[in-house]
Design a binder for these strands. Sequence first.
DNA 1: ATTATCTATAGATCTATAGATAATGC
DNA 2: ATTATCTATAGATCTATAGATAATGC
Lengths: 208, 208
Amino acid sequence: MGTGGGRRVGRPRAAQRPDSGLEPRAELLDAAAELFTTRGYAATTTRAVAERAGMRQASMYHYVTGKEELLAELLESTVRPSLSCARELLADDTAPAERRLWVLCRTDVEVLCGGPHNLGGLYLLPEVRTERFAGFHAVRAELKDTYRQLLAATAAGGALAKSELELRTDLLFGLIEGVILVHRSDPQRPVSAFAEATADAALRIAGI
Amino acid sequence: MGTGGGRRVGRPRAAQRPDSGLEPRAELLDAAAELFTTRGYAATTTRAVAERAGMRQASMYHYVTGKEELLAELLESTVRPSLSCARELLADDTAPAERRLWVLCRTDVEVLCGGPHNLGGLYLLPEVRTERFAGFHAVRAELKDTYRQLLAATAAGGALAKSELELRTDLLFGLIEGVILVHRSDPQRPVSAFAEATADAALRIAGI
DNA sequence: ATTATCTATAGATCTATAGATAATGC
DNA sequence: ATTATCTATAGATCTATAGATAATGC
């Protein structure tokens, strides 16, 4: 028997709503993603998250320890697909580095802007800088380092001094992480074309 | 008699501290800038702002109506210098548009990254999207439009179709607004050289 | 019996106001 | 008298826990 449809163990929910088909924890993550990105993390209460997920505030604690856990999981889940794509591209030596860097940029933009919520916006929250999110910072650092290595492997990048390479990596990665700001200014633009245009721009920034 | 030194009317403050030389309202704005950018707007309490400004929580209400007013004023004060610079550059037809656009980018980055606090980071707060900050959105829109006009006045920009021009303006403006993210990744970098490098990158993004 | 949920609530905030107080100014 | 500040606090939250309840499963 699947998740939906069948009778569920436990006291029924007070507010019955159409079955989303998601596990309760996924419902909570989904609700948190929506609220954190639109209202901000600190401004979102546990009550708002729980009610949007279809349960009462207290029931949320059956699945997560609190708001922080939701944010930490959302952050990491946003970087991980990009990171695994980045690792594959770094290992693949059949294509030129310029092309692989372009593909990485495009993929990243598609992930960041393509989802139902602007999850990429979470990177920008000031709260995220704290120690609590060390796990996220670790995967993010590894992703950024892959950008740096791919850039260094290009013809133009290989000729750069170390500090110049770092600067270009920062600019390039900054454009990609900040792309959500650009996306916000015209959400109607089709994501696939937008991702390609941004990848073009990213390579121009990097001086390729 | 100047602001500092002389005896002041009114009950003395409970916690005497070295005179900052600022008016009380400016002390509050300064404290708010620091706290909003580092901890986030929603996460900052009126108490934290007031105490950092050297007064008790309740005393803050003698100068401002609440947190929102502080944020609104900080936002507008960050854009206004850039906007007046932008207007001058738009009117000045002695220099080529390419050069004027470059100068605007450099100035903007210096303003955003040069201050004692990363005020530019406030642009990114989700709370800012609400109606309450319409004044800020108006000046920001005018600044962005100046970027667009300068870009359209360049040789490369003049050749673009309307939608392509909008896209390039969005990318260019997005890099500048998001530059604070890049600055964060290495705050040690000297601002003036960083501003020039970013202006170079901005023009490359725009396809110039 | 086990489970997922509920209701109720203690304790910890946080905001904004009321009213007192300690200066200077006349 | 005027002013800038203070202390105190009411009212409104918000979080996290305790304990009750209504399902299924055996």
